[in-house]
C-alpha cells in the first residue's frame, strides 16, 4: 500500500503539467470559461502522451484527474480511455463517446467516437457522420451525433471501455471537485461580508469540510479502483463520484453566491462541469444496480 506517485507516474504527470504550462494555464482556462474547445492544447496532449502507449489504467486516470483539475477543455482523457479499450486503433484526432441519446461531449470537435452499433461498440470516424451542436449550459460543448453514415475504424473491447470510461469520468469528477473546492475556498478567504471574511463563518467552514471529505474520498477510490481493476471497486468509485458531484455542485454554487454564474470569476467551470460529468456517469439508480450486482472480491467479508 503506497499512496505516493511512483517515479513513472510522477514523470507522466510532469509531462502533462509541462504541456499545459507551456501552452498557458490561464489561456487554457479562458477557453474553458465559455464552454469552448482547446484544439491546440488537445493536439499537443495527444502528441505528448499517446493513448496507444502501454499506460495502465491508473496512469490514465491520474492524467484525467490532473487535466480536469487544471481546467482544460480537451478530449485527451477520453482518448486515454479508448487507448485501453481499442489498442489497435490508430487515434489521430480528438475522441468522444456517444451517449445513449446521441449526445457527445466535444461531439462537434471530435474526429473519432465510440458508439454502440447493434450489440457491439465501435470506433467510428466522424467525418461522414451527422453532427449537430446543441446548446448546453454545462461549460462543455455538446453535440448530437448520428453515426449511421460514419466509417467504422475498429472494434472496442466493451468490458475494457466500460471500466475505463467509468473511471476516467470519475477521475474527472475528482479533479473538478478539487478545483471547485479550491476556488470556492479562495472566494471565502477573500470575500468580506458583515465586516469579516466569509471564511470565518463556521456554518460555511463546516460545509466546505464536508465537501473536502467527499472530494478526497472520490480521488482515492478512483485510483484504488484503477489499480485493482475489480468490477466492484470500479462500481463503488463511479457510484461515489456521481454522488460527490451531486453534492458539490449545489453547495459550491450556493456558497459562491451569484459569482458562481459569471464567466469572469471562473467558479462556474468546476461546478457546472461536475454536473455534466454526473450525468455522463449515469443515473443514480443505474449505478446503484451495477454496484449491488458486482461481486465482492474473493475473500472480502467486510468491504475490503
Amino acid at each position: 500500500m503506497d499512496f505516493d506517485l511512483n517515479d513513472d507516474q510522477a514523470a507522466l504527470l510532469a509531462r502533462i503539467d509541462t504541456v499545459v504550462a507551456d501552452h498557458g494555464v490561464q489561456r487554457a482556462f479562458d477557453v474553458s470559461r465559455t464552454g469552448g474547445y482547446d484544439a491546440d492544447l488537445d493536439t499537443r496532449l495527444y502528441a505528448t502522451v499517446d493513448p496507444a502507449q502501454p499506460f495502465d489504467l491508473l496512469d490514465r486516470v491520474l492524467v484525467a484527474d490532473r487535466l480536469a483539475e487544471s481546467g482544460t477543455a480537451t478530449t485527451h482523457a477520453m482518448g486515454l480511455a479508448l487507448g485501453l479499450a481499442a489498442p489497435d486503433v490508430m487515434i489521430t484526432g480528438p475522441v468522444t463517446a456517444v451517449g445513449p441519446t446521441g449526445l457527445a461531449r466535444f461531439g462537434a470537435q471530435a474526429r473519432f467516437a465510440v458508439v454502440g452499433q447493434g450489440d457491439e461498440l465501435r470506433v467510428v470516424d466522424l467525418t461522414a457522420a451527422t453532427v449537430e451542436p446543441v446548446r448546453s449550459g454545462f461549460v462543455y460543448p455538446y453535440a448530437r451525433i448520428d453515426a449511421a453514415g460514419a466509417r467504422t475504424v475498429g472494434a472496442v473491447d466493451e468490458q475494457e471501455w466500460d471500466r475505463a470510461i467509468a473511471l476516467v469520468r470519475s477521475a474527472e469528477v475528482a479533479g473538478l471537485a478539487a478545483a471547485a473546492i479550491a476556488r470556492t475556498a479562495e472566494h471565502l478567504k477573500n470575500r468580506v461580508q458583515f465586516g469579516r471574511p466569509l471564511a470565518t463563518l463556521q456554518a460555511l467552514r463546516h460545509r466546505m469540510s464536508e465537501l473536502a471529505v467527499s472530494a478526497e474520498a472520490t480521488r482515492w477510490l478512483v485510483r484504488e479502483a484503477a489499480y485493482t481493476g475489480t468490477p466492484r471497486a470500479i462500481a463503488v468509485a463511479a457510484q461515489y463520484a456521481q454522488q460527490t458531484a451531486a453534492t458539490i455542485v449545489p453547495e459550491v454554487v450556493q456558497i459562491g453566491g451569484a459569482r458562481s454564474f459569471a464567466h469572469e470569476f471562473g467558479q462556474h467551470v468546476g461546478a457546472f462541469r461536475l454536473e455534466a460529468l454526473r450525468l455522463e456517469l449515469g443515473r443514480p439508480d443505474v449505478l446503484a444496480r451495477k454496484l449491488n450486482a458486482s461481486p465482492l472480491p474473493a475473500g472480502a467479508s467486510n468491504g475490503k
Binding site: S214, A217, T218, L221, A233, V236, Q239, Y240, Q243, L287, A288, R289, L291, N292, G303
Partner: peptide, 9 residues
C-alpha cells in the same frame, strides 16, 4: 449502494 460506497470511502 450509497451505504456500500460510503463504507469504501
Amino acid at each position: 449502494a450509497s451505504a456500500r460506497a460510503a463504507c469504501a470511502a
